[in-house]
Design a protein around this nucleic acid. Sequence first.
RNA 1: GCCGGGGUAGGGUAGAGGUUAUCCUGUGGCCCUGUGGAGGCUACGAUCCGAGUUCAAUUCUCGGUCCCGGCCCCA
Length: 409
Amino acid sequence: MTVNKPRGTRDFLPADTARRRYVESIMRDVARNWGYSEIITPTFEHLDLFTLKSGEGIVGELYNFTDKGGREMTLRPELTAPVMRLYVNELQSFPKPLKLFYFENCFRYERPQKGRFREFWQFGVELIGSGKPDSDAEVIALADSMLKAVGVKGDLKIGNLAVIRTLLSGLEPEIVSTVMRLVDKKEYAGLEGLLEEIGAEEQLKSDLFHLIKLEGRYILPDVKEIVGNLPELVSFEKTLKLLDAYGVDYTLDFGIARGLDYYTGMVFEVYAEGLGAQKQVCGGGSYQLIKLFGGGDVPSTGFGIGFDRIMEICPLTPPAPKTLVMISKPSVHLEAINFANELRKYVPVHIDLMERNFKAQLSYANTINADYVVIVGEKELEAGKLTLRDMVSGEQELLTLEEIIEKIC
RNA sequence: GCCGGGGUAGGGUAGAGGUUAUCCUGUGGCCCUGUGGAGGCUACGAUCCGAGUUCAAUUCUCGGUCCCGGCCCCA
């Protein structure tokens, strides 16, 4: 009997893995160069951590389980809550702002489709301790810079929830979240119907539709006309000026709702083409979550990047290291191992493990597309040298080990 | 949870209610014990699972499962 991998999981073959590791390393480098430090949190957490943040409703989407001590646990479905928990547990008295990033796998019990798996990888950044325009701008600029670094082009949309929240402040909380959902999905017909149903004022209706249909880079004056010059808009405007300084290209969209209630002000999303229905590659904003987990009233800003979606559209290929195959006669196999050890300080070296004859070893080097073959034989050993064969040109020459290292490195 | 399309060797495929299920590729070995890519020989290797219809099912029907895409959801 054969056992298959669980639904929604993937095996990554050597070429896939090399590519993922390569792109991953670029993203890590960008984050580090912006002064962010990587952290690792547990693969599973107490179930409460996530129900606290997202409500009991998410349990249906979790890989949760009861452990042998009767504790309710779950594989992590995301990393913002774990990072907040870590902050509250360990980092509250560290100097602010705290700039953290993570790159881990997450698990959700959902129906797989294009760009959506049950085990998936998330890259993310959390900037904790500052609610200033500069930190909002930096986080957006970092996301933008990171996507550019891996060759992903997308539409960056920035909004601010204060605007629509102000507009809807007279409505019941449940109505507000339904309205926000419809706005986020741009279901204008459904929105119209709902507003009709609840008997919303004409002014509200026209303001709301006016607001969510505004599009583009310079719509702030129109927004101010609708909701007035809110204090949030003053600092939002600063954020946008900073983004111009960073050279970030964006459009404003005050219809972004980002699903959850804990986002307080600035929110942003990045969409890329070529991904089917799941085309959001990045989402983030500023939020107040720490209090929820027992910490103080600390403002934070962060974003998450769906790494698997990035890999779908990322055009980069990792540089291939030169590979070398050591070929020997049985009589000098032990010497060959010695030379291989030396060469392995510089390049990847393969050596025969199947007791193949000379010709088959060479043929193997050819099938794995080796760049070079180093031949160890009696003739070579007598001369105190080795034969280096260039598998592309077919040329070969008798060289010392040092000369070979010189030549191929 | 719902909807649509699929499932034949490791990868790609052909076929067909019937006895030994194609072909390409791959991998191992040999031709060939110091020189690869070609060629020849050889070995390995598949009808997703279960039930039903039938003398006979890989083929038809139903159910399951898995894959792909979409809905819901998207922290």
